[in-house]
Nucleic acid binder design. Structure first.
Lengths: 341, 341
DNA sequence: CTGAAAGCGCTTACAG
DNA sequence: CTGAAAGCGCTTACAG
């Protein structure tokens, strides 16, 4: 091994000299081009090893007018759902030369445009984005029109014509509700989530649908909206518990809300899973660690990330292809928070 | 707004022409150089706006022989500790033009060298790394010697002379143990973590130290090692519970283990927080959602990431400065898993 | 205060 | 099968 720290970076020109060929030939070898004879290739590879050559992908990208970085814009990496989605993106990129630039928006639209701007300056070959809640469809369409392969995840842009992958929120609401109905519950609350949030709108629609199919009346008093924080979840729960005819079960807008609901129940002397049933929506691993282990509707965060990565990769290869809409089918994970039969 | 999608990318040459100046002048304006007169600057900025110019940072980086990307190598983004650390890194980079390339190793050393290689090819201005468990100090030192500003996080490299930021594991073990002793416990178990893991070695050392200071004998039977999975935690717990003289409290190697221990207790008919005390080590937000809410020793994941980012930034500015060693002081967060007084 | 020119490390038609 | 030359979009001494 050559242990001398190189003063100047080793380039393909150095390799060319050492191997007695031209830089073009070295470049061709690097690209595993078939035209190069085995003998020449060996000489070049030998020189690469001897000089400790390191490929400069960003120089190549500049020349080629591409980038092998994928921008990933999410709300908050500490949210287990996005952490899993991020892991899925990495998985989907495995085996390629792409690397991900991770940025967070904190669900702030100004910050979102700042980080997007920064991604563009650094150069990205594609973008996967969970749009901040106030995002206008034009923002996304302008990105696509600018030539950046883009895939939107989870949060459906009102009308934007772009690749998309996300869950069937309505079905998720229906599945959660149906499960509780089958368990014999008649008064079922839907707690948390902001009224204007499209995913909540869909989940609630599914909830109402399942109620209706079971011949169960929808009671608006049982459906309370709030920013999905722990504290809000607990106060939402107290509201419905104080009703003249309180519910016997509740669906949390997401797993986090559902877990908070279980804490809230105990403060009221109610044992979750025994005296009151709870189901969440998300299916992240934190649901499994809760006590009692949370019954939840899995939205497949990891799979979402993986598919999103595949979609951008495809669009990078074929920029003109028609837009795809991947809707992932949620499924129920029965654990202990609705009681054990 | 100019809505025509540019066929060719707008460059500083286009701006120069439009503003009637030279490319050098445009570059100087972009860099907010003082030498440029206000009038010229205005003309250039006007042209930038009109033509929709987008700065190509990677071309600039090529010319300058730098990169404004920071590589972040962690084990697993789904582990809340690393998610928080990642958020901390982003925080520490805020206000700079740096972006992070996130990669995971899955704690596999071969994968670690592959992703490192890929980071180098893409070009990084600095590296923050949580080294995979089998990492040799030479690996880290070679990176530093190669000129890449590096900061190691959390897992202390045996002897490597590099910047480092991580927790005081020994103190964390002492704090957890002392808390239980003060609560009146005499038989305290330390459960989970692999025997060869340096952080476990330190935490156990702190545990023994606190025991000794309290005049409490260390019983090896109460200290069981295992890979920190939920299943192992539960079987470790059963082992100590089956002892002739079982413990009345346990420290989990980390929060995840501690939460699993609470599940294990209930399977044995023991109510955590009432009949048995549990304390964790980590202090991630999942500890708060557990039931009962987990008493834990906070290791400051977010702060770790933030400081690591600052250290690389400093080293990028001053490559020759002496190495820093930042040891974060853990602190106890009392919640409900050891009972309420 | 501003411009001409070289160069960062690659790739890629185009010749031969 | 291999090489000479131009160029990707910037920056930076060096002149003036």
């Amino acid at each position: 091994m050559n242990e001398i720290a190189p003063l100047r970076r080793v380039t393909i020109i150095d390799i060319a000299k050492a191997a007695g060929v031209s830089p073009s030939t070295v470049s061709l070898v690097l690209q595993k081009n078939e035209r190069i004879s085995a003998e020449t290739r060996n000489r070049v590879e030998e020189a690469i090893r001897k000089l400790g050559y390191k490929y400069n992908r960003s120089a190549a990208n500049l020349r080629r007018q591409t980038s092998q970085a994928i921008g990933l814009i999410i709300n908050d990496i500490c949210n287990p759902f996005f952490a899993e989605m991020t892991a899925g993106v990495q998985k989907g990129l495995e085996g390629t030369e792409f690397l991900v630039f991770l940025v967070e928006t904190g669900d702030e639209i100004e910050r979102q445009s700042r980080v997007y701007q920064s991604l563009e300056e650094h150069g990205i070959g594609g973008l996967i984005i969970f749009p901040a809640s106030q995002t206008k469809p034009e923002f996304l369409e302008r990105i696509a029109a600018g030539g950046t392969p883009i895939c939107v995840a989870i949060r459906r842009p009102p009308d934007a014509d772009v690749d998309y992958v996300g869950p069937d929120n309505r079905l998720a609401g229906r599945i959660a509700t149906r499960h509780l109905i089958e368990l014999g519950h008649r008064r079922i609350a839907f707690l948390g989530g902001e009224a204007k949030s499209p995913s909540r709108i869909d989940r609630v629609a599914g909830y109402q649908e399942a109620l209706q199919r079971a011949g169960n009346a929808f009671d608006p008093a049982l459906c309370v909206e709030s920013r999905p924080t722990r504290a809000n979840a607990i106060s939402d729960l107290n509201k419905v518990l104080d009703l003249p005819e309180p519910p016997t079960a509740a669906i949390g807008y997401n797993d986090n809300v559902a877990i908070a609901l279980m804490h809230g129940l105990r403060r009221r002397g109610l044992e979750p899973g025994r005296q009151f049933a709870i189901v969440g929506i998300d299916g992240t691993s934190e649901a499994e660690l809760a006590y009692p282990a949370l019954t939840t509707v899995a939205l497949h965060a990891h799979e979402t990330g993986r598919r999103a990565a595949e979609l951008v990769l495809e669009r990078i290869k074929a920029p003109g292809k028609t837009h795809e809409n991947v809707i992932l089918r949620p499924n129920l994970i029965v654990r202990a928070s609705c009681g054990t039969r």
